[in-house]
């Protein structure tokens, strides 16, 4: 089992899009995939079709999400919490959902000495059930992001390469260094930064010719971080696949889909296929 965190402390850089579609891409390659959403905004949870209820009373995630996983050592193990994505992809993937209550509980969790270790320990118990675990971390530098980076073996940093996203790379590097100190106490290898994944890149020709290469160079030279060969471009289908709804009489039910499900022959599908292959090669898994 290999665990990959998707993290950048700049929001809006395509983190969730990357997490869910990469998960789908790996699943479509026959891998057993678990997607863990540890971002209180629960965008991955939504994108995999687990938030279809309209009313609070119908919320079936509140007491069964990643929060319970982190809160208790002896209860609420991964098989108790895991959900199968719904209408998201063929085949569906396994998801540990997130919930907005994570925000409220952070204060309490920081008081728990072992809160940073729970996810790691619980994943160790199901090591043989999955090939790849993907963790969608929050775009902040909080306890949840820390848990994600402590738990993961590898890190992907999705970035639109714009100035703020680039300047945030220093924060990411410092954060990784801090986490690595904690990992060394755990006798755990340092987190391996697989690289910056260019995402939400404009398809405008002039931009691609004149500006984009300079942005890439900045990342590699100024921040000395590797960059993925695969580029995830900003495309209509990719942003639409999350926002699908299906009409049920008077109600519009959210019906988000993976890009593979939404438009099987589009460019974005090819990009995510390439990303899956590139990733598997980087982490030494069979493609």
């Amino acid at each position: 089992m290999k665990t990959i965190a998707i993290y950048h402390n700049k929001g809006g850089v395509g983190k969730t899009t990357t997490a869910v579609n990469l998960a789908a891409g790996l699943r479509n390659k026959g891998k057993k995939v678990l997607l863990i959403d540890i971002d209180a905004q629960a965008n991955s949870t939504f994108a995999t079709g687990l938030i279809k209820f309209e009313f609070e009373e119908d919320d079936d995630l509140k007491h069964k999400n990643v929060l319970q996983l982190i809160s208790s050592a002896d209860f609420d193990f991964i098989p108790d919490i895991v959900r199968r994505s719904s209408g998201f992809n063929h085949p569906e993937i396994d998801v540990i959902p997130s919930h907005i209550t994570l925000i409220d509980q952070q204060q309490h969790l920081t008081r728990i000495a072992a809160s940073r270790l729970r996810l790691l320990f619980k994943l160790e118990k199901i090591e043989d059930d999955y090939d790849i675990v993907i963790i969608d971390a929050p775009p902040s530098r909080d306890l949840y992001a820390e848990i994600a980076l402590i738990t993961a073996d590898y890190l992907i940093i999705p970035s639109d390469l714009k100035p703020f996203a680039n300047q945030g790379l220093n924060n990411v590097k410092n954060f990784v260094a801090e986490v690595n100190e904690f990992r060394s106490n755990l006798k755990k290898e340092p987190l391996e930064v697989l690289g910056v994944l260019p995402s939400k890149v404009l398809t405008n020709n002039r931009f691609l010719q004149h500006i984009f290469p300079r942005l890439l160079e900045t990342v590699e030279i100024r921040y000395s971080l590797p960059v993925f060969k695969t580029i995830i471009y900003e495309r209509v289908a990719l942003s639409n696949c999350v926002n699908q709804t299906s009409n049920m009489g008077v109600r519009e039910i959210p019906s988000p889909k993976s890009i593979f499900e939404y438009e099987p022959h589009c460019e974005s599908v090819r990009e995510f296929r390439n990303l899956s292959t590139e990733l598997l090669k980087k982490i030494g898994e069979s493609t």
């Binding site: 050592a73 002896d74 008081r111 728990i112 000495a113 072992a114």
Partner: peptide, 10 residues
């Protein structure tokens, strides 16, 4: 530091 510690880890 003041913490909540798992009883089983003591």
């Amino acid at each position: 530091e003041y913490y909540l510690v798992d009883v089983k880890s003591i």
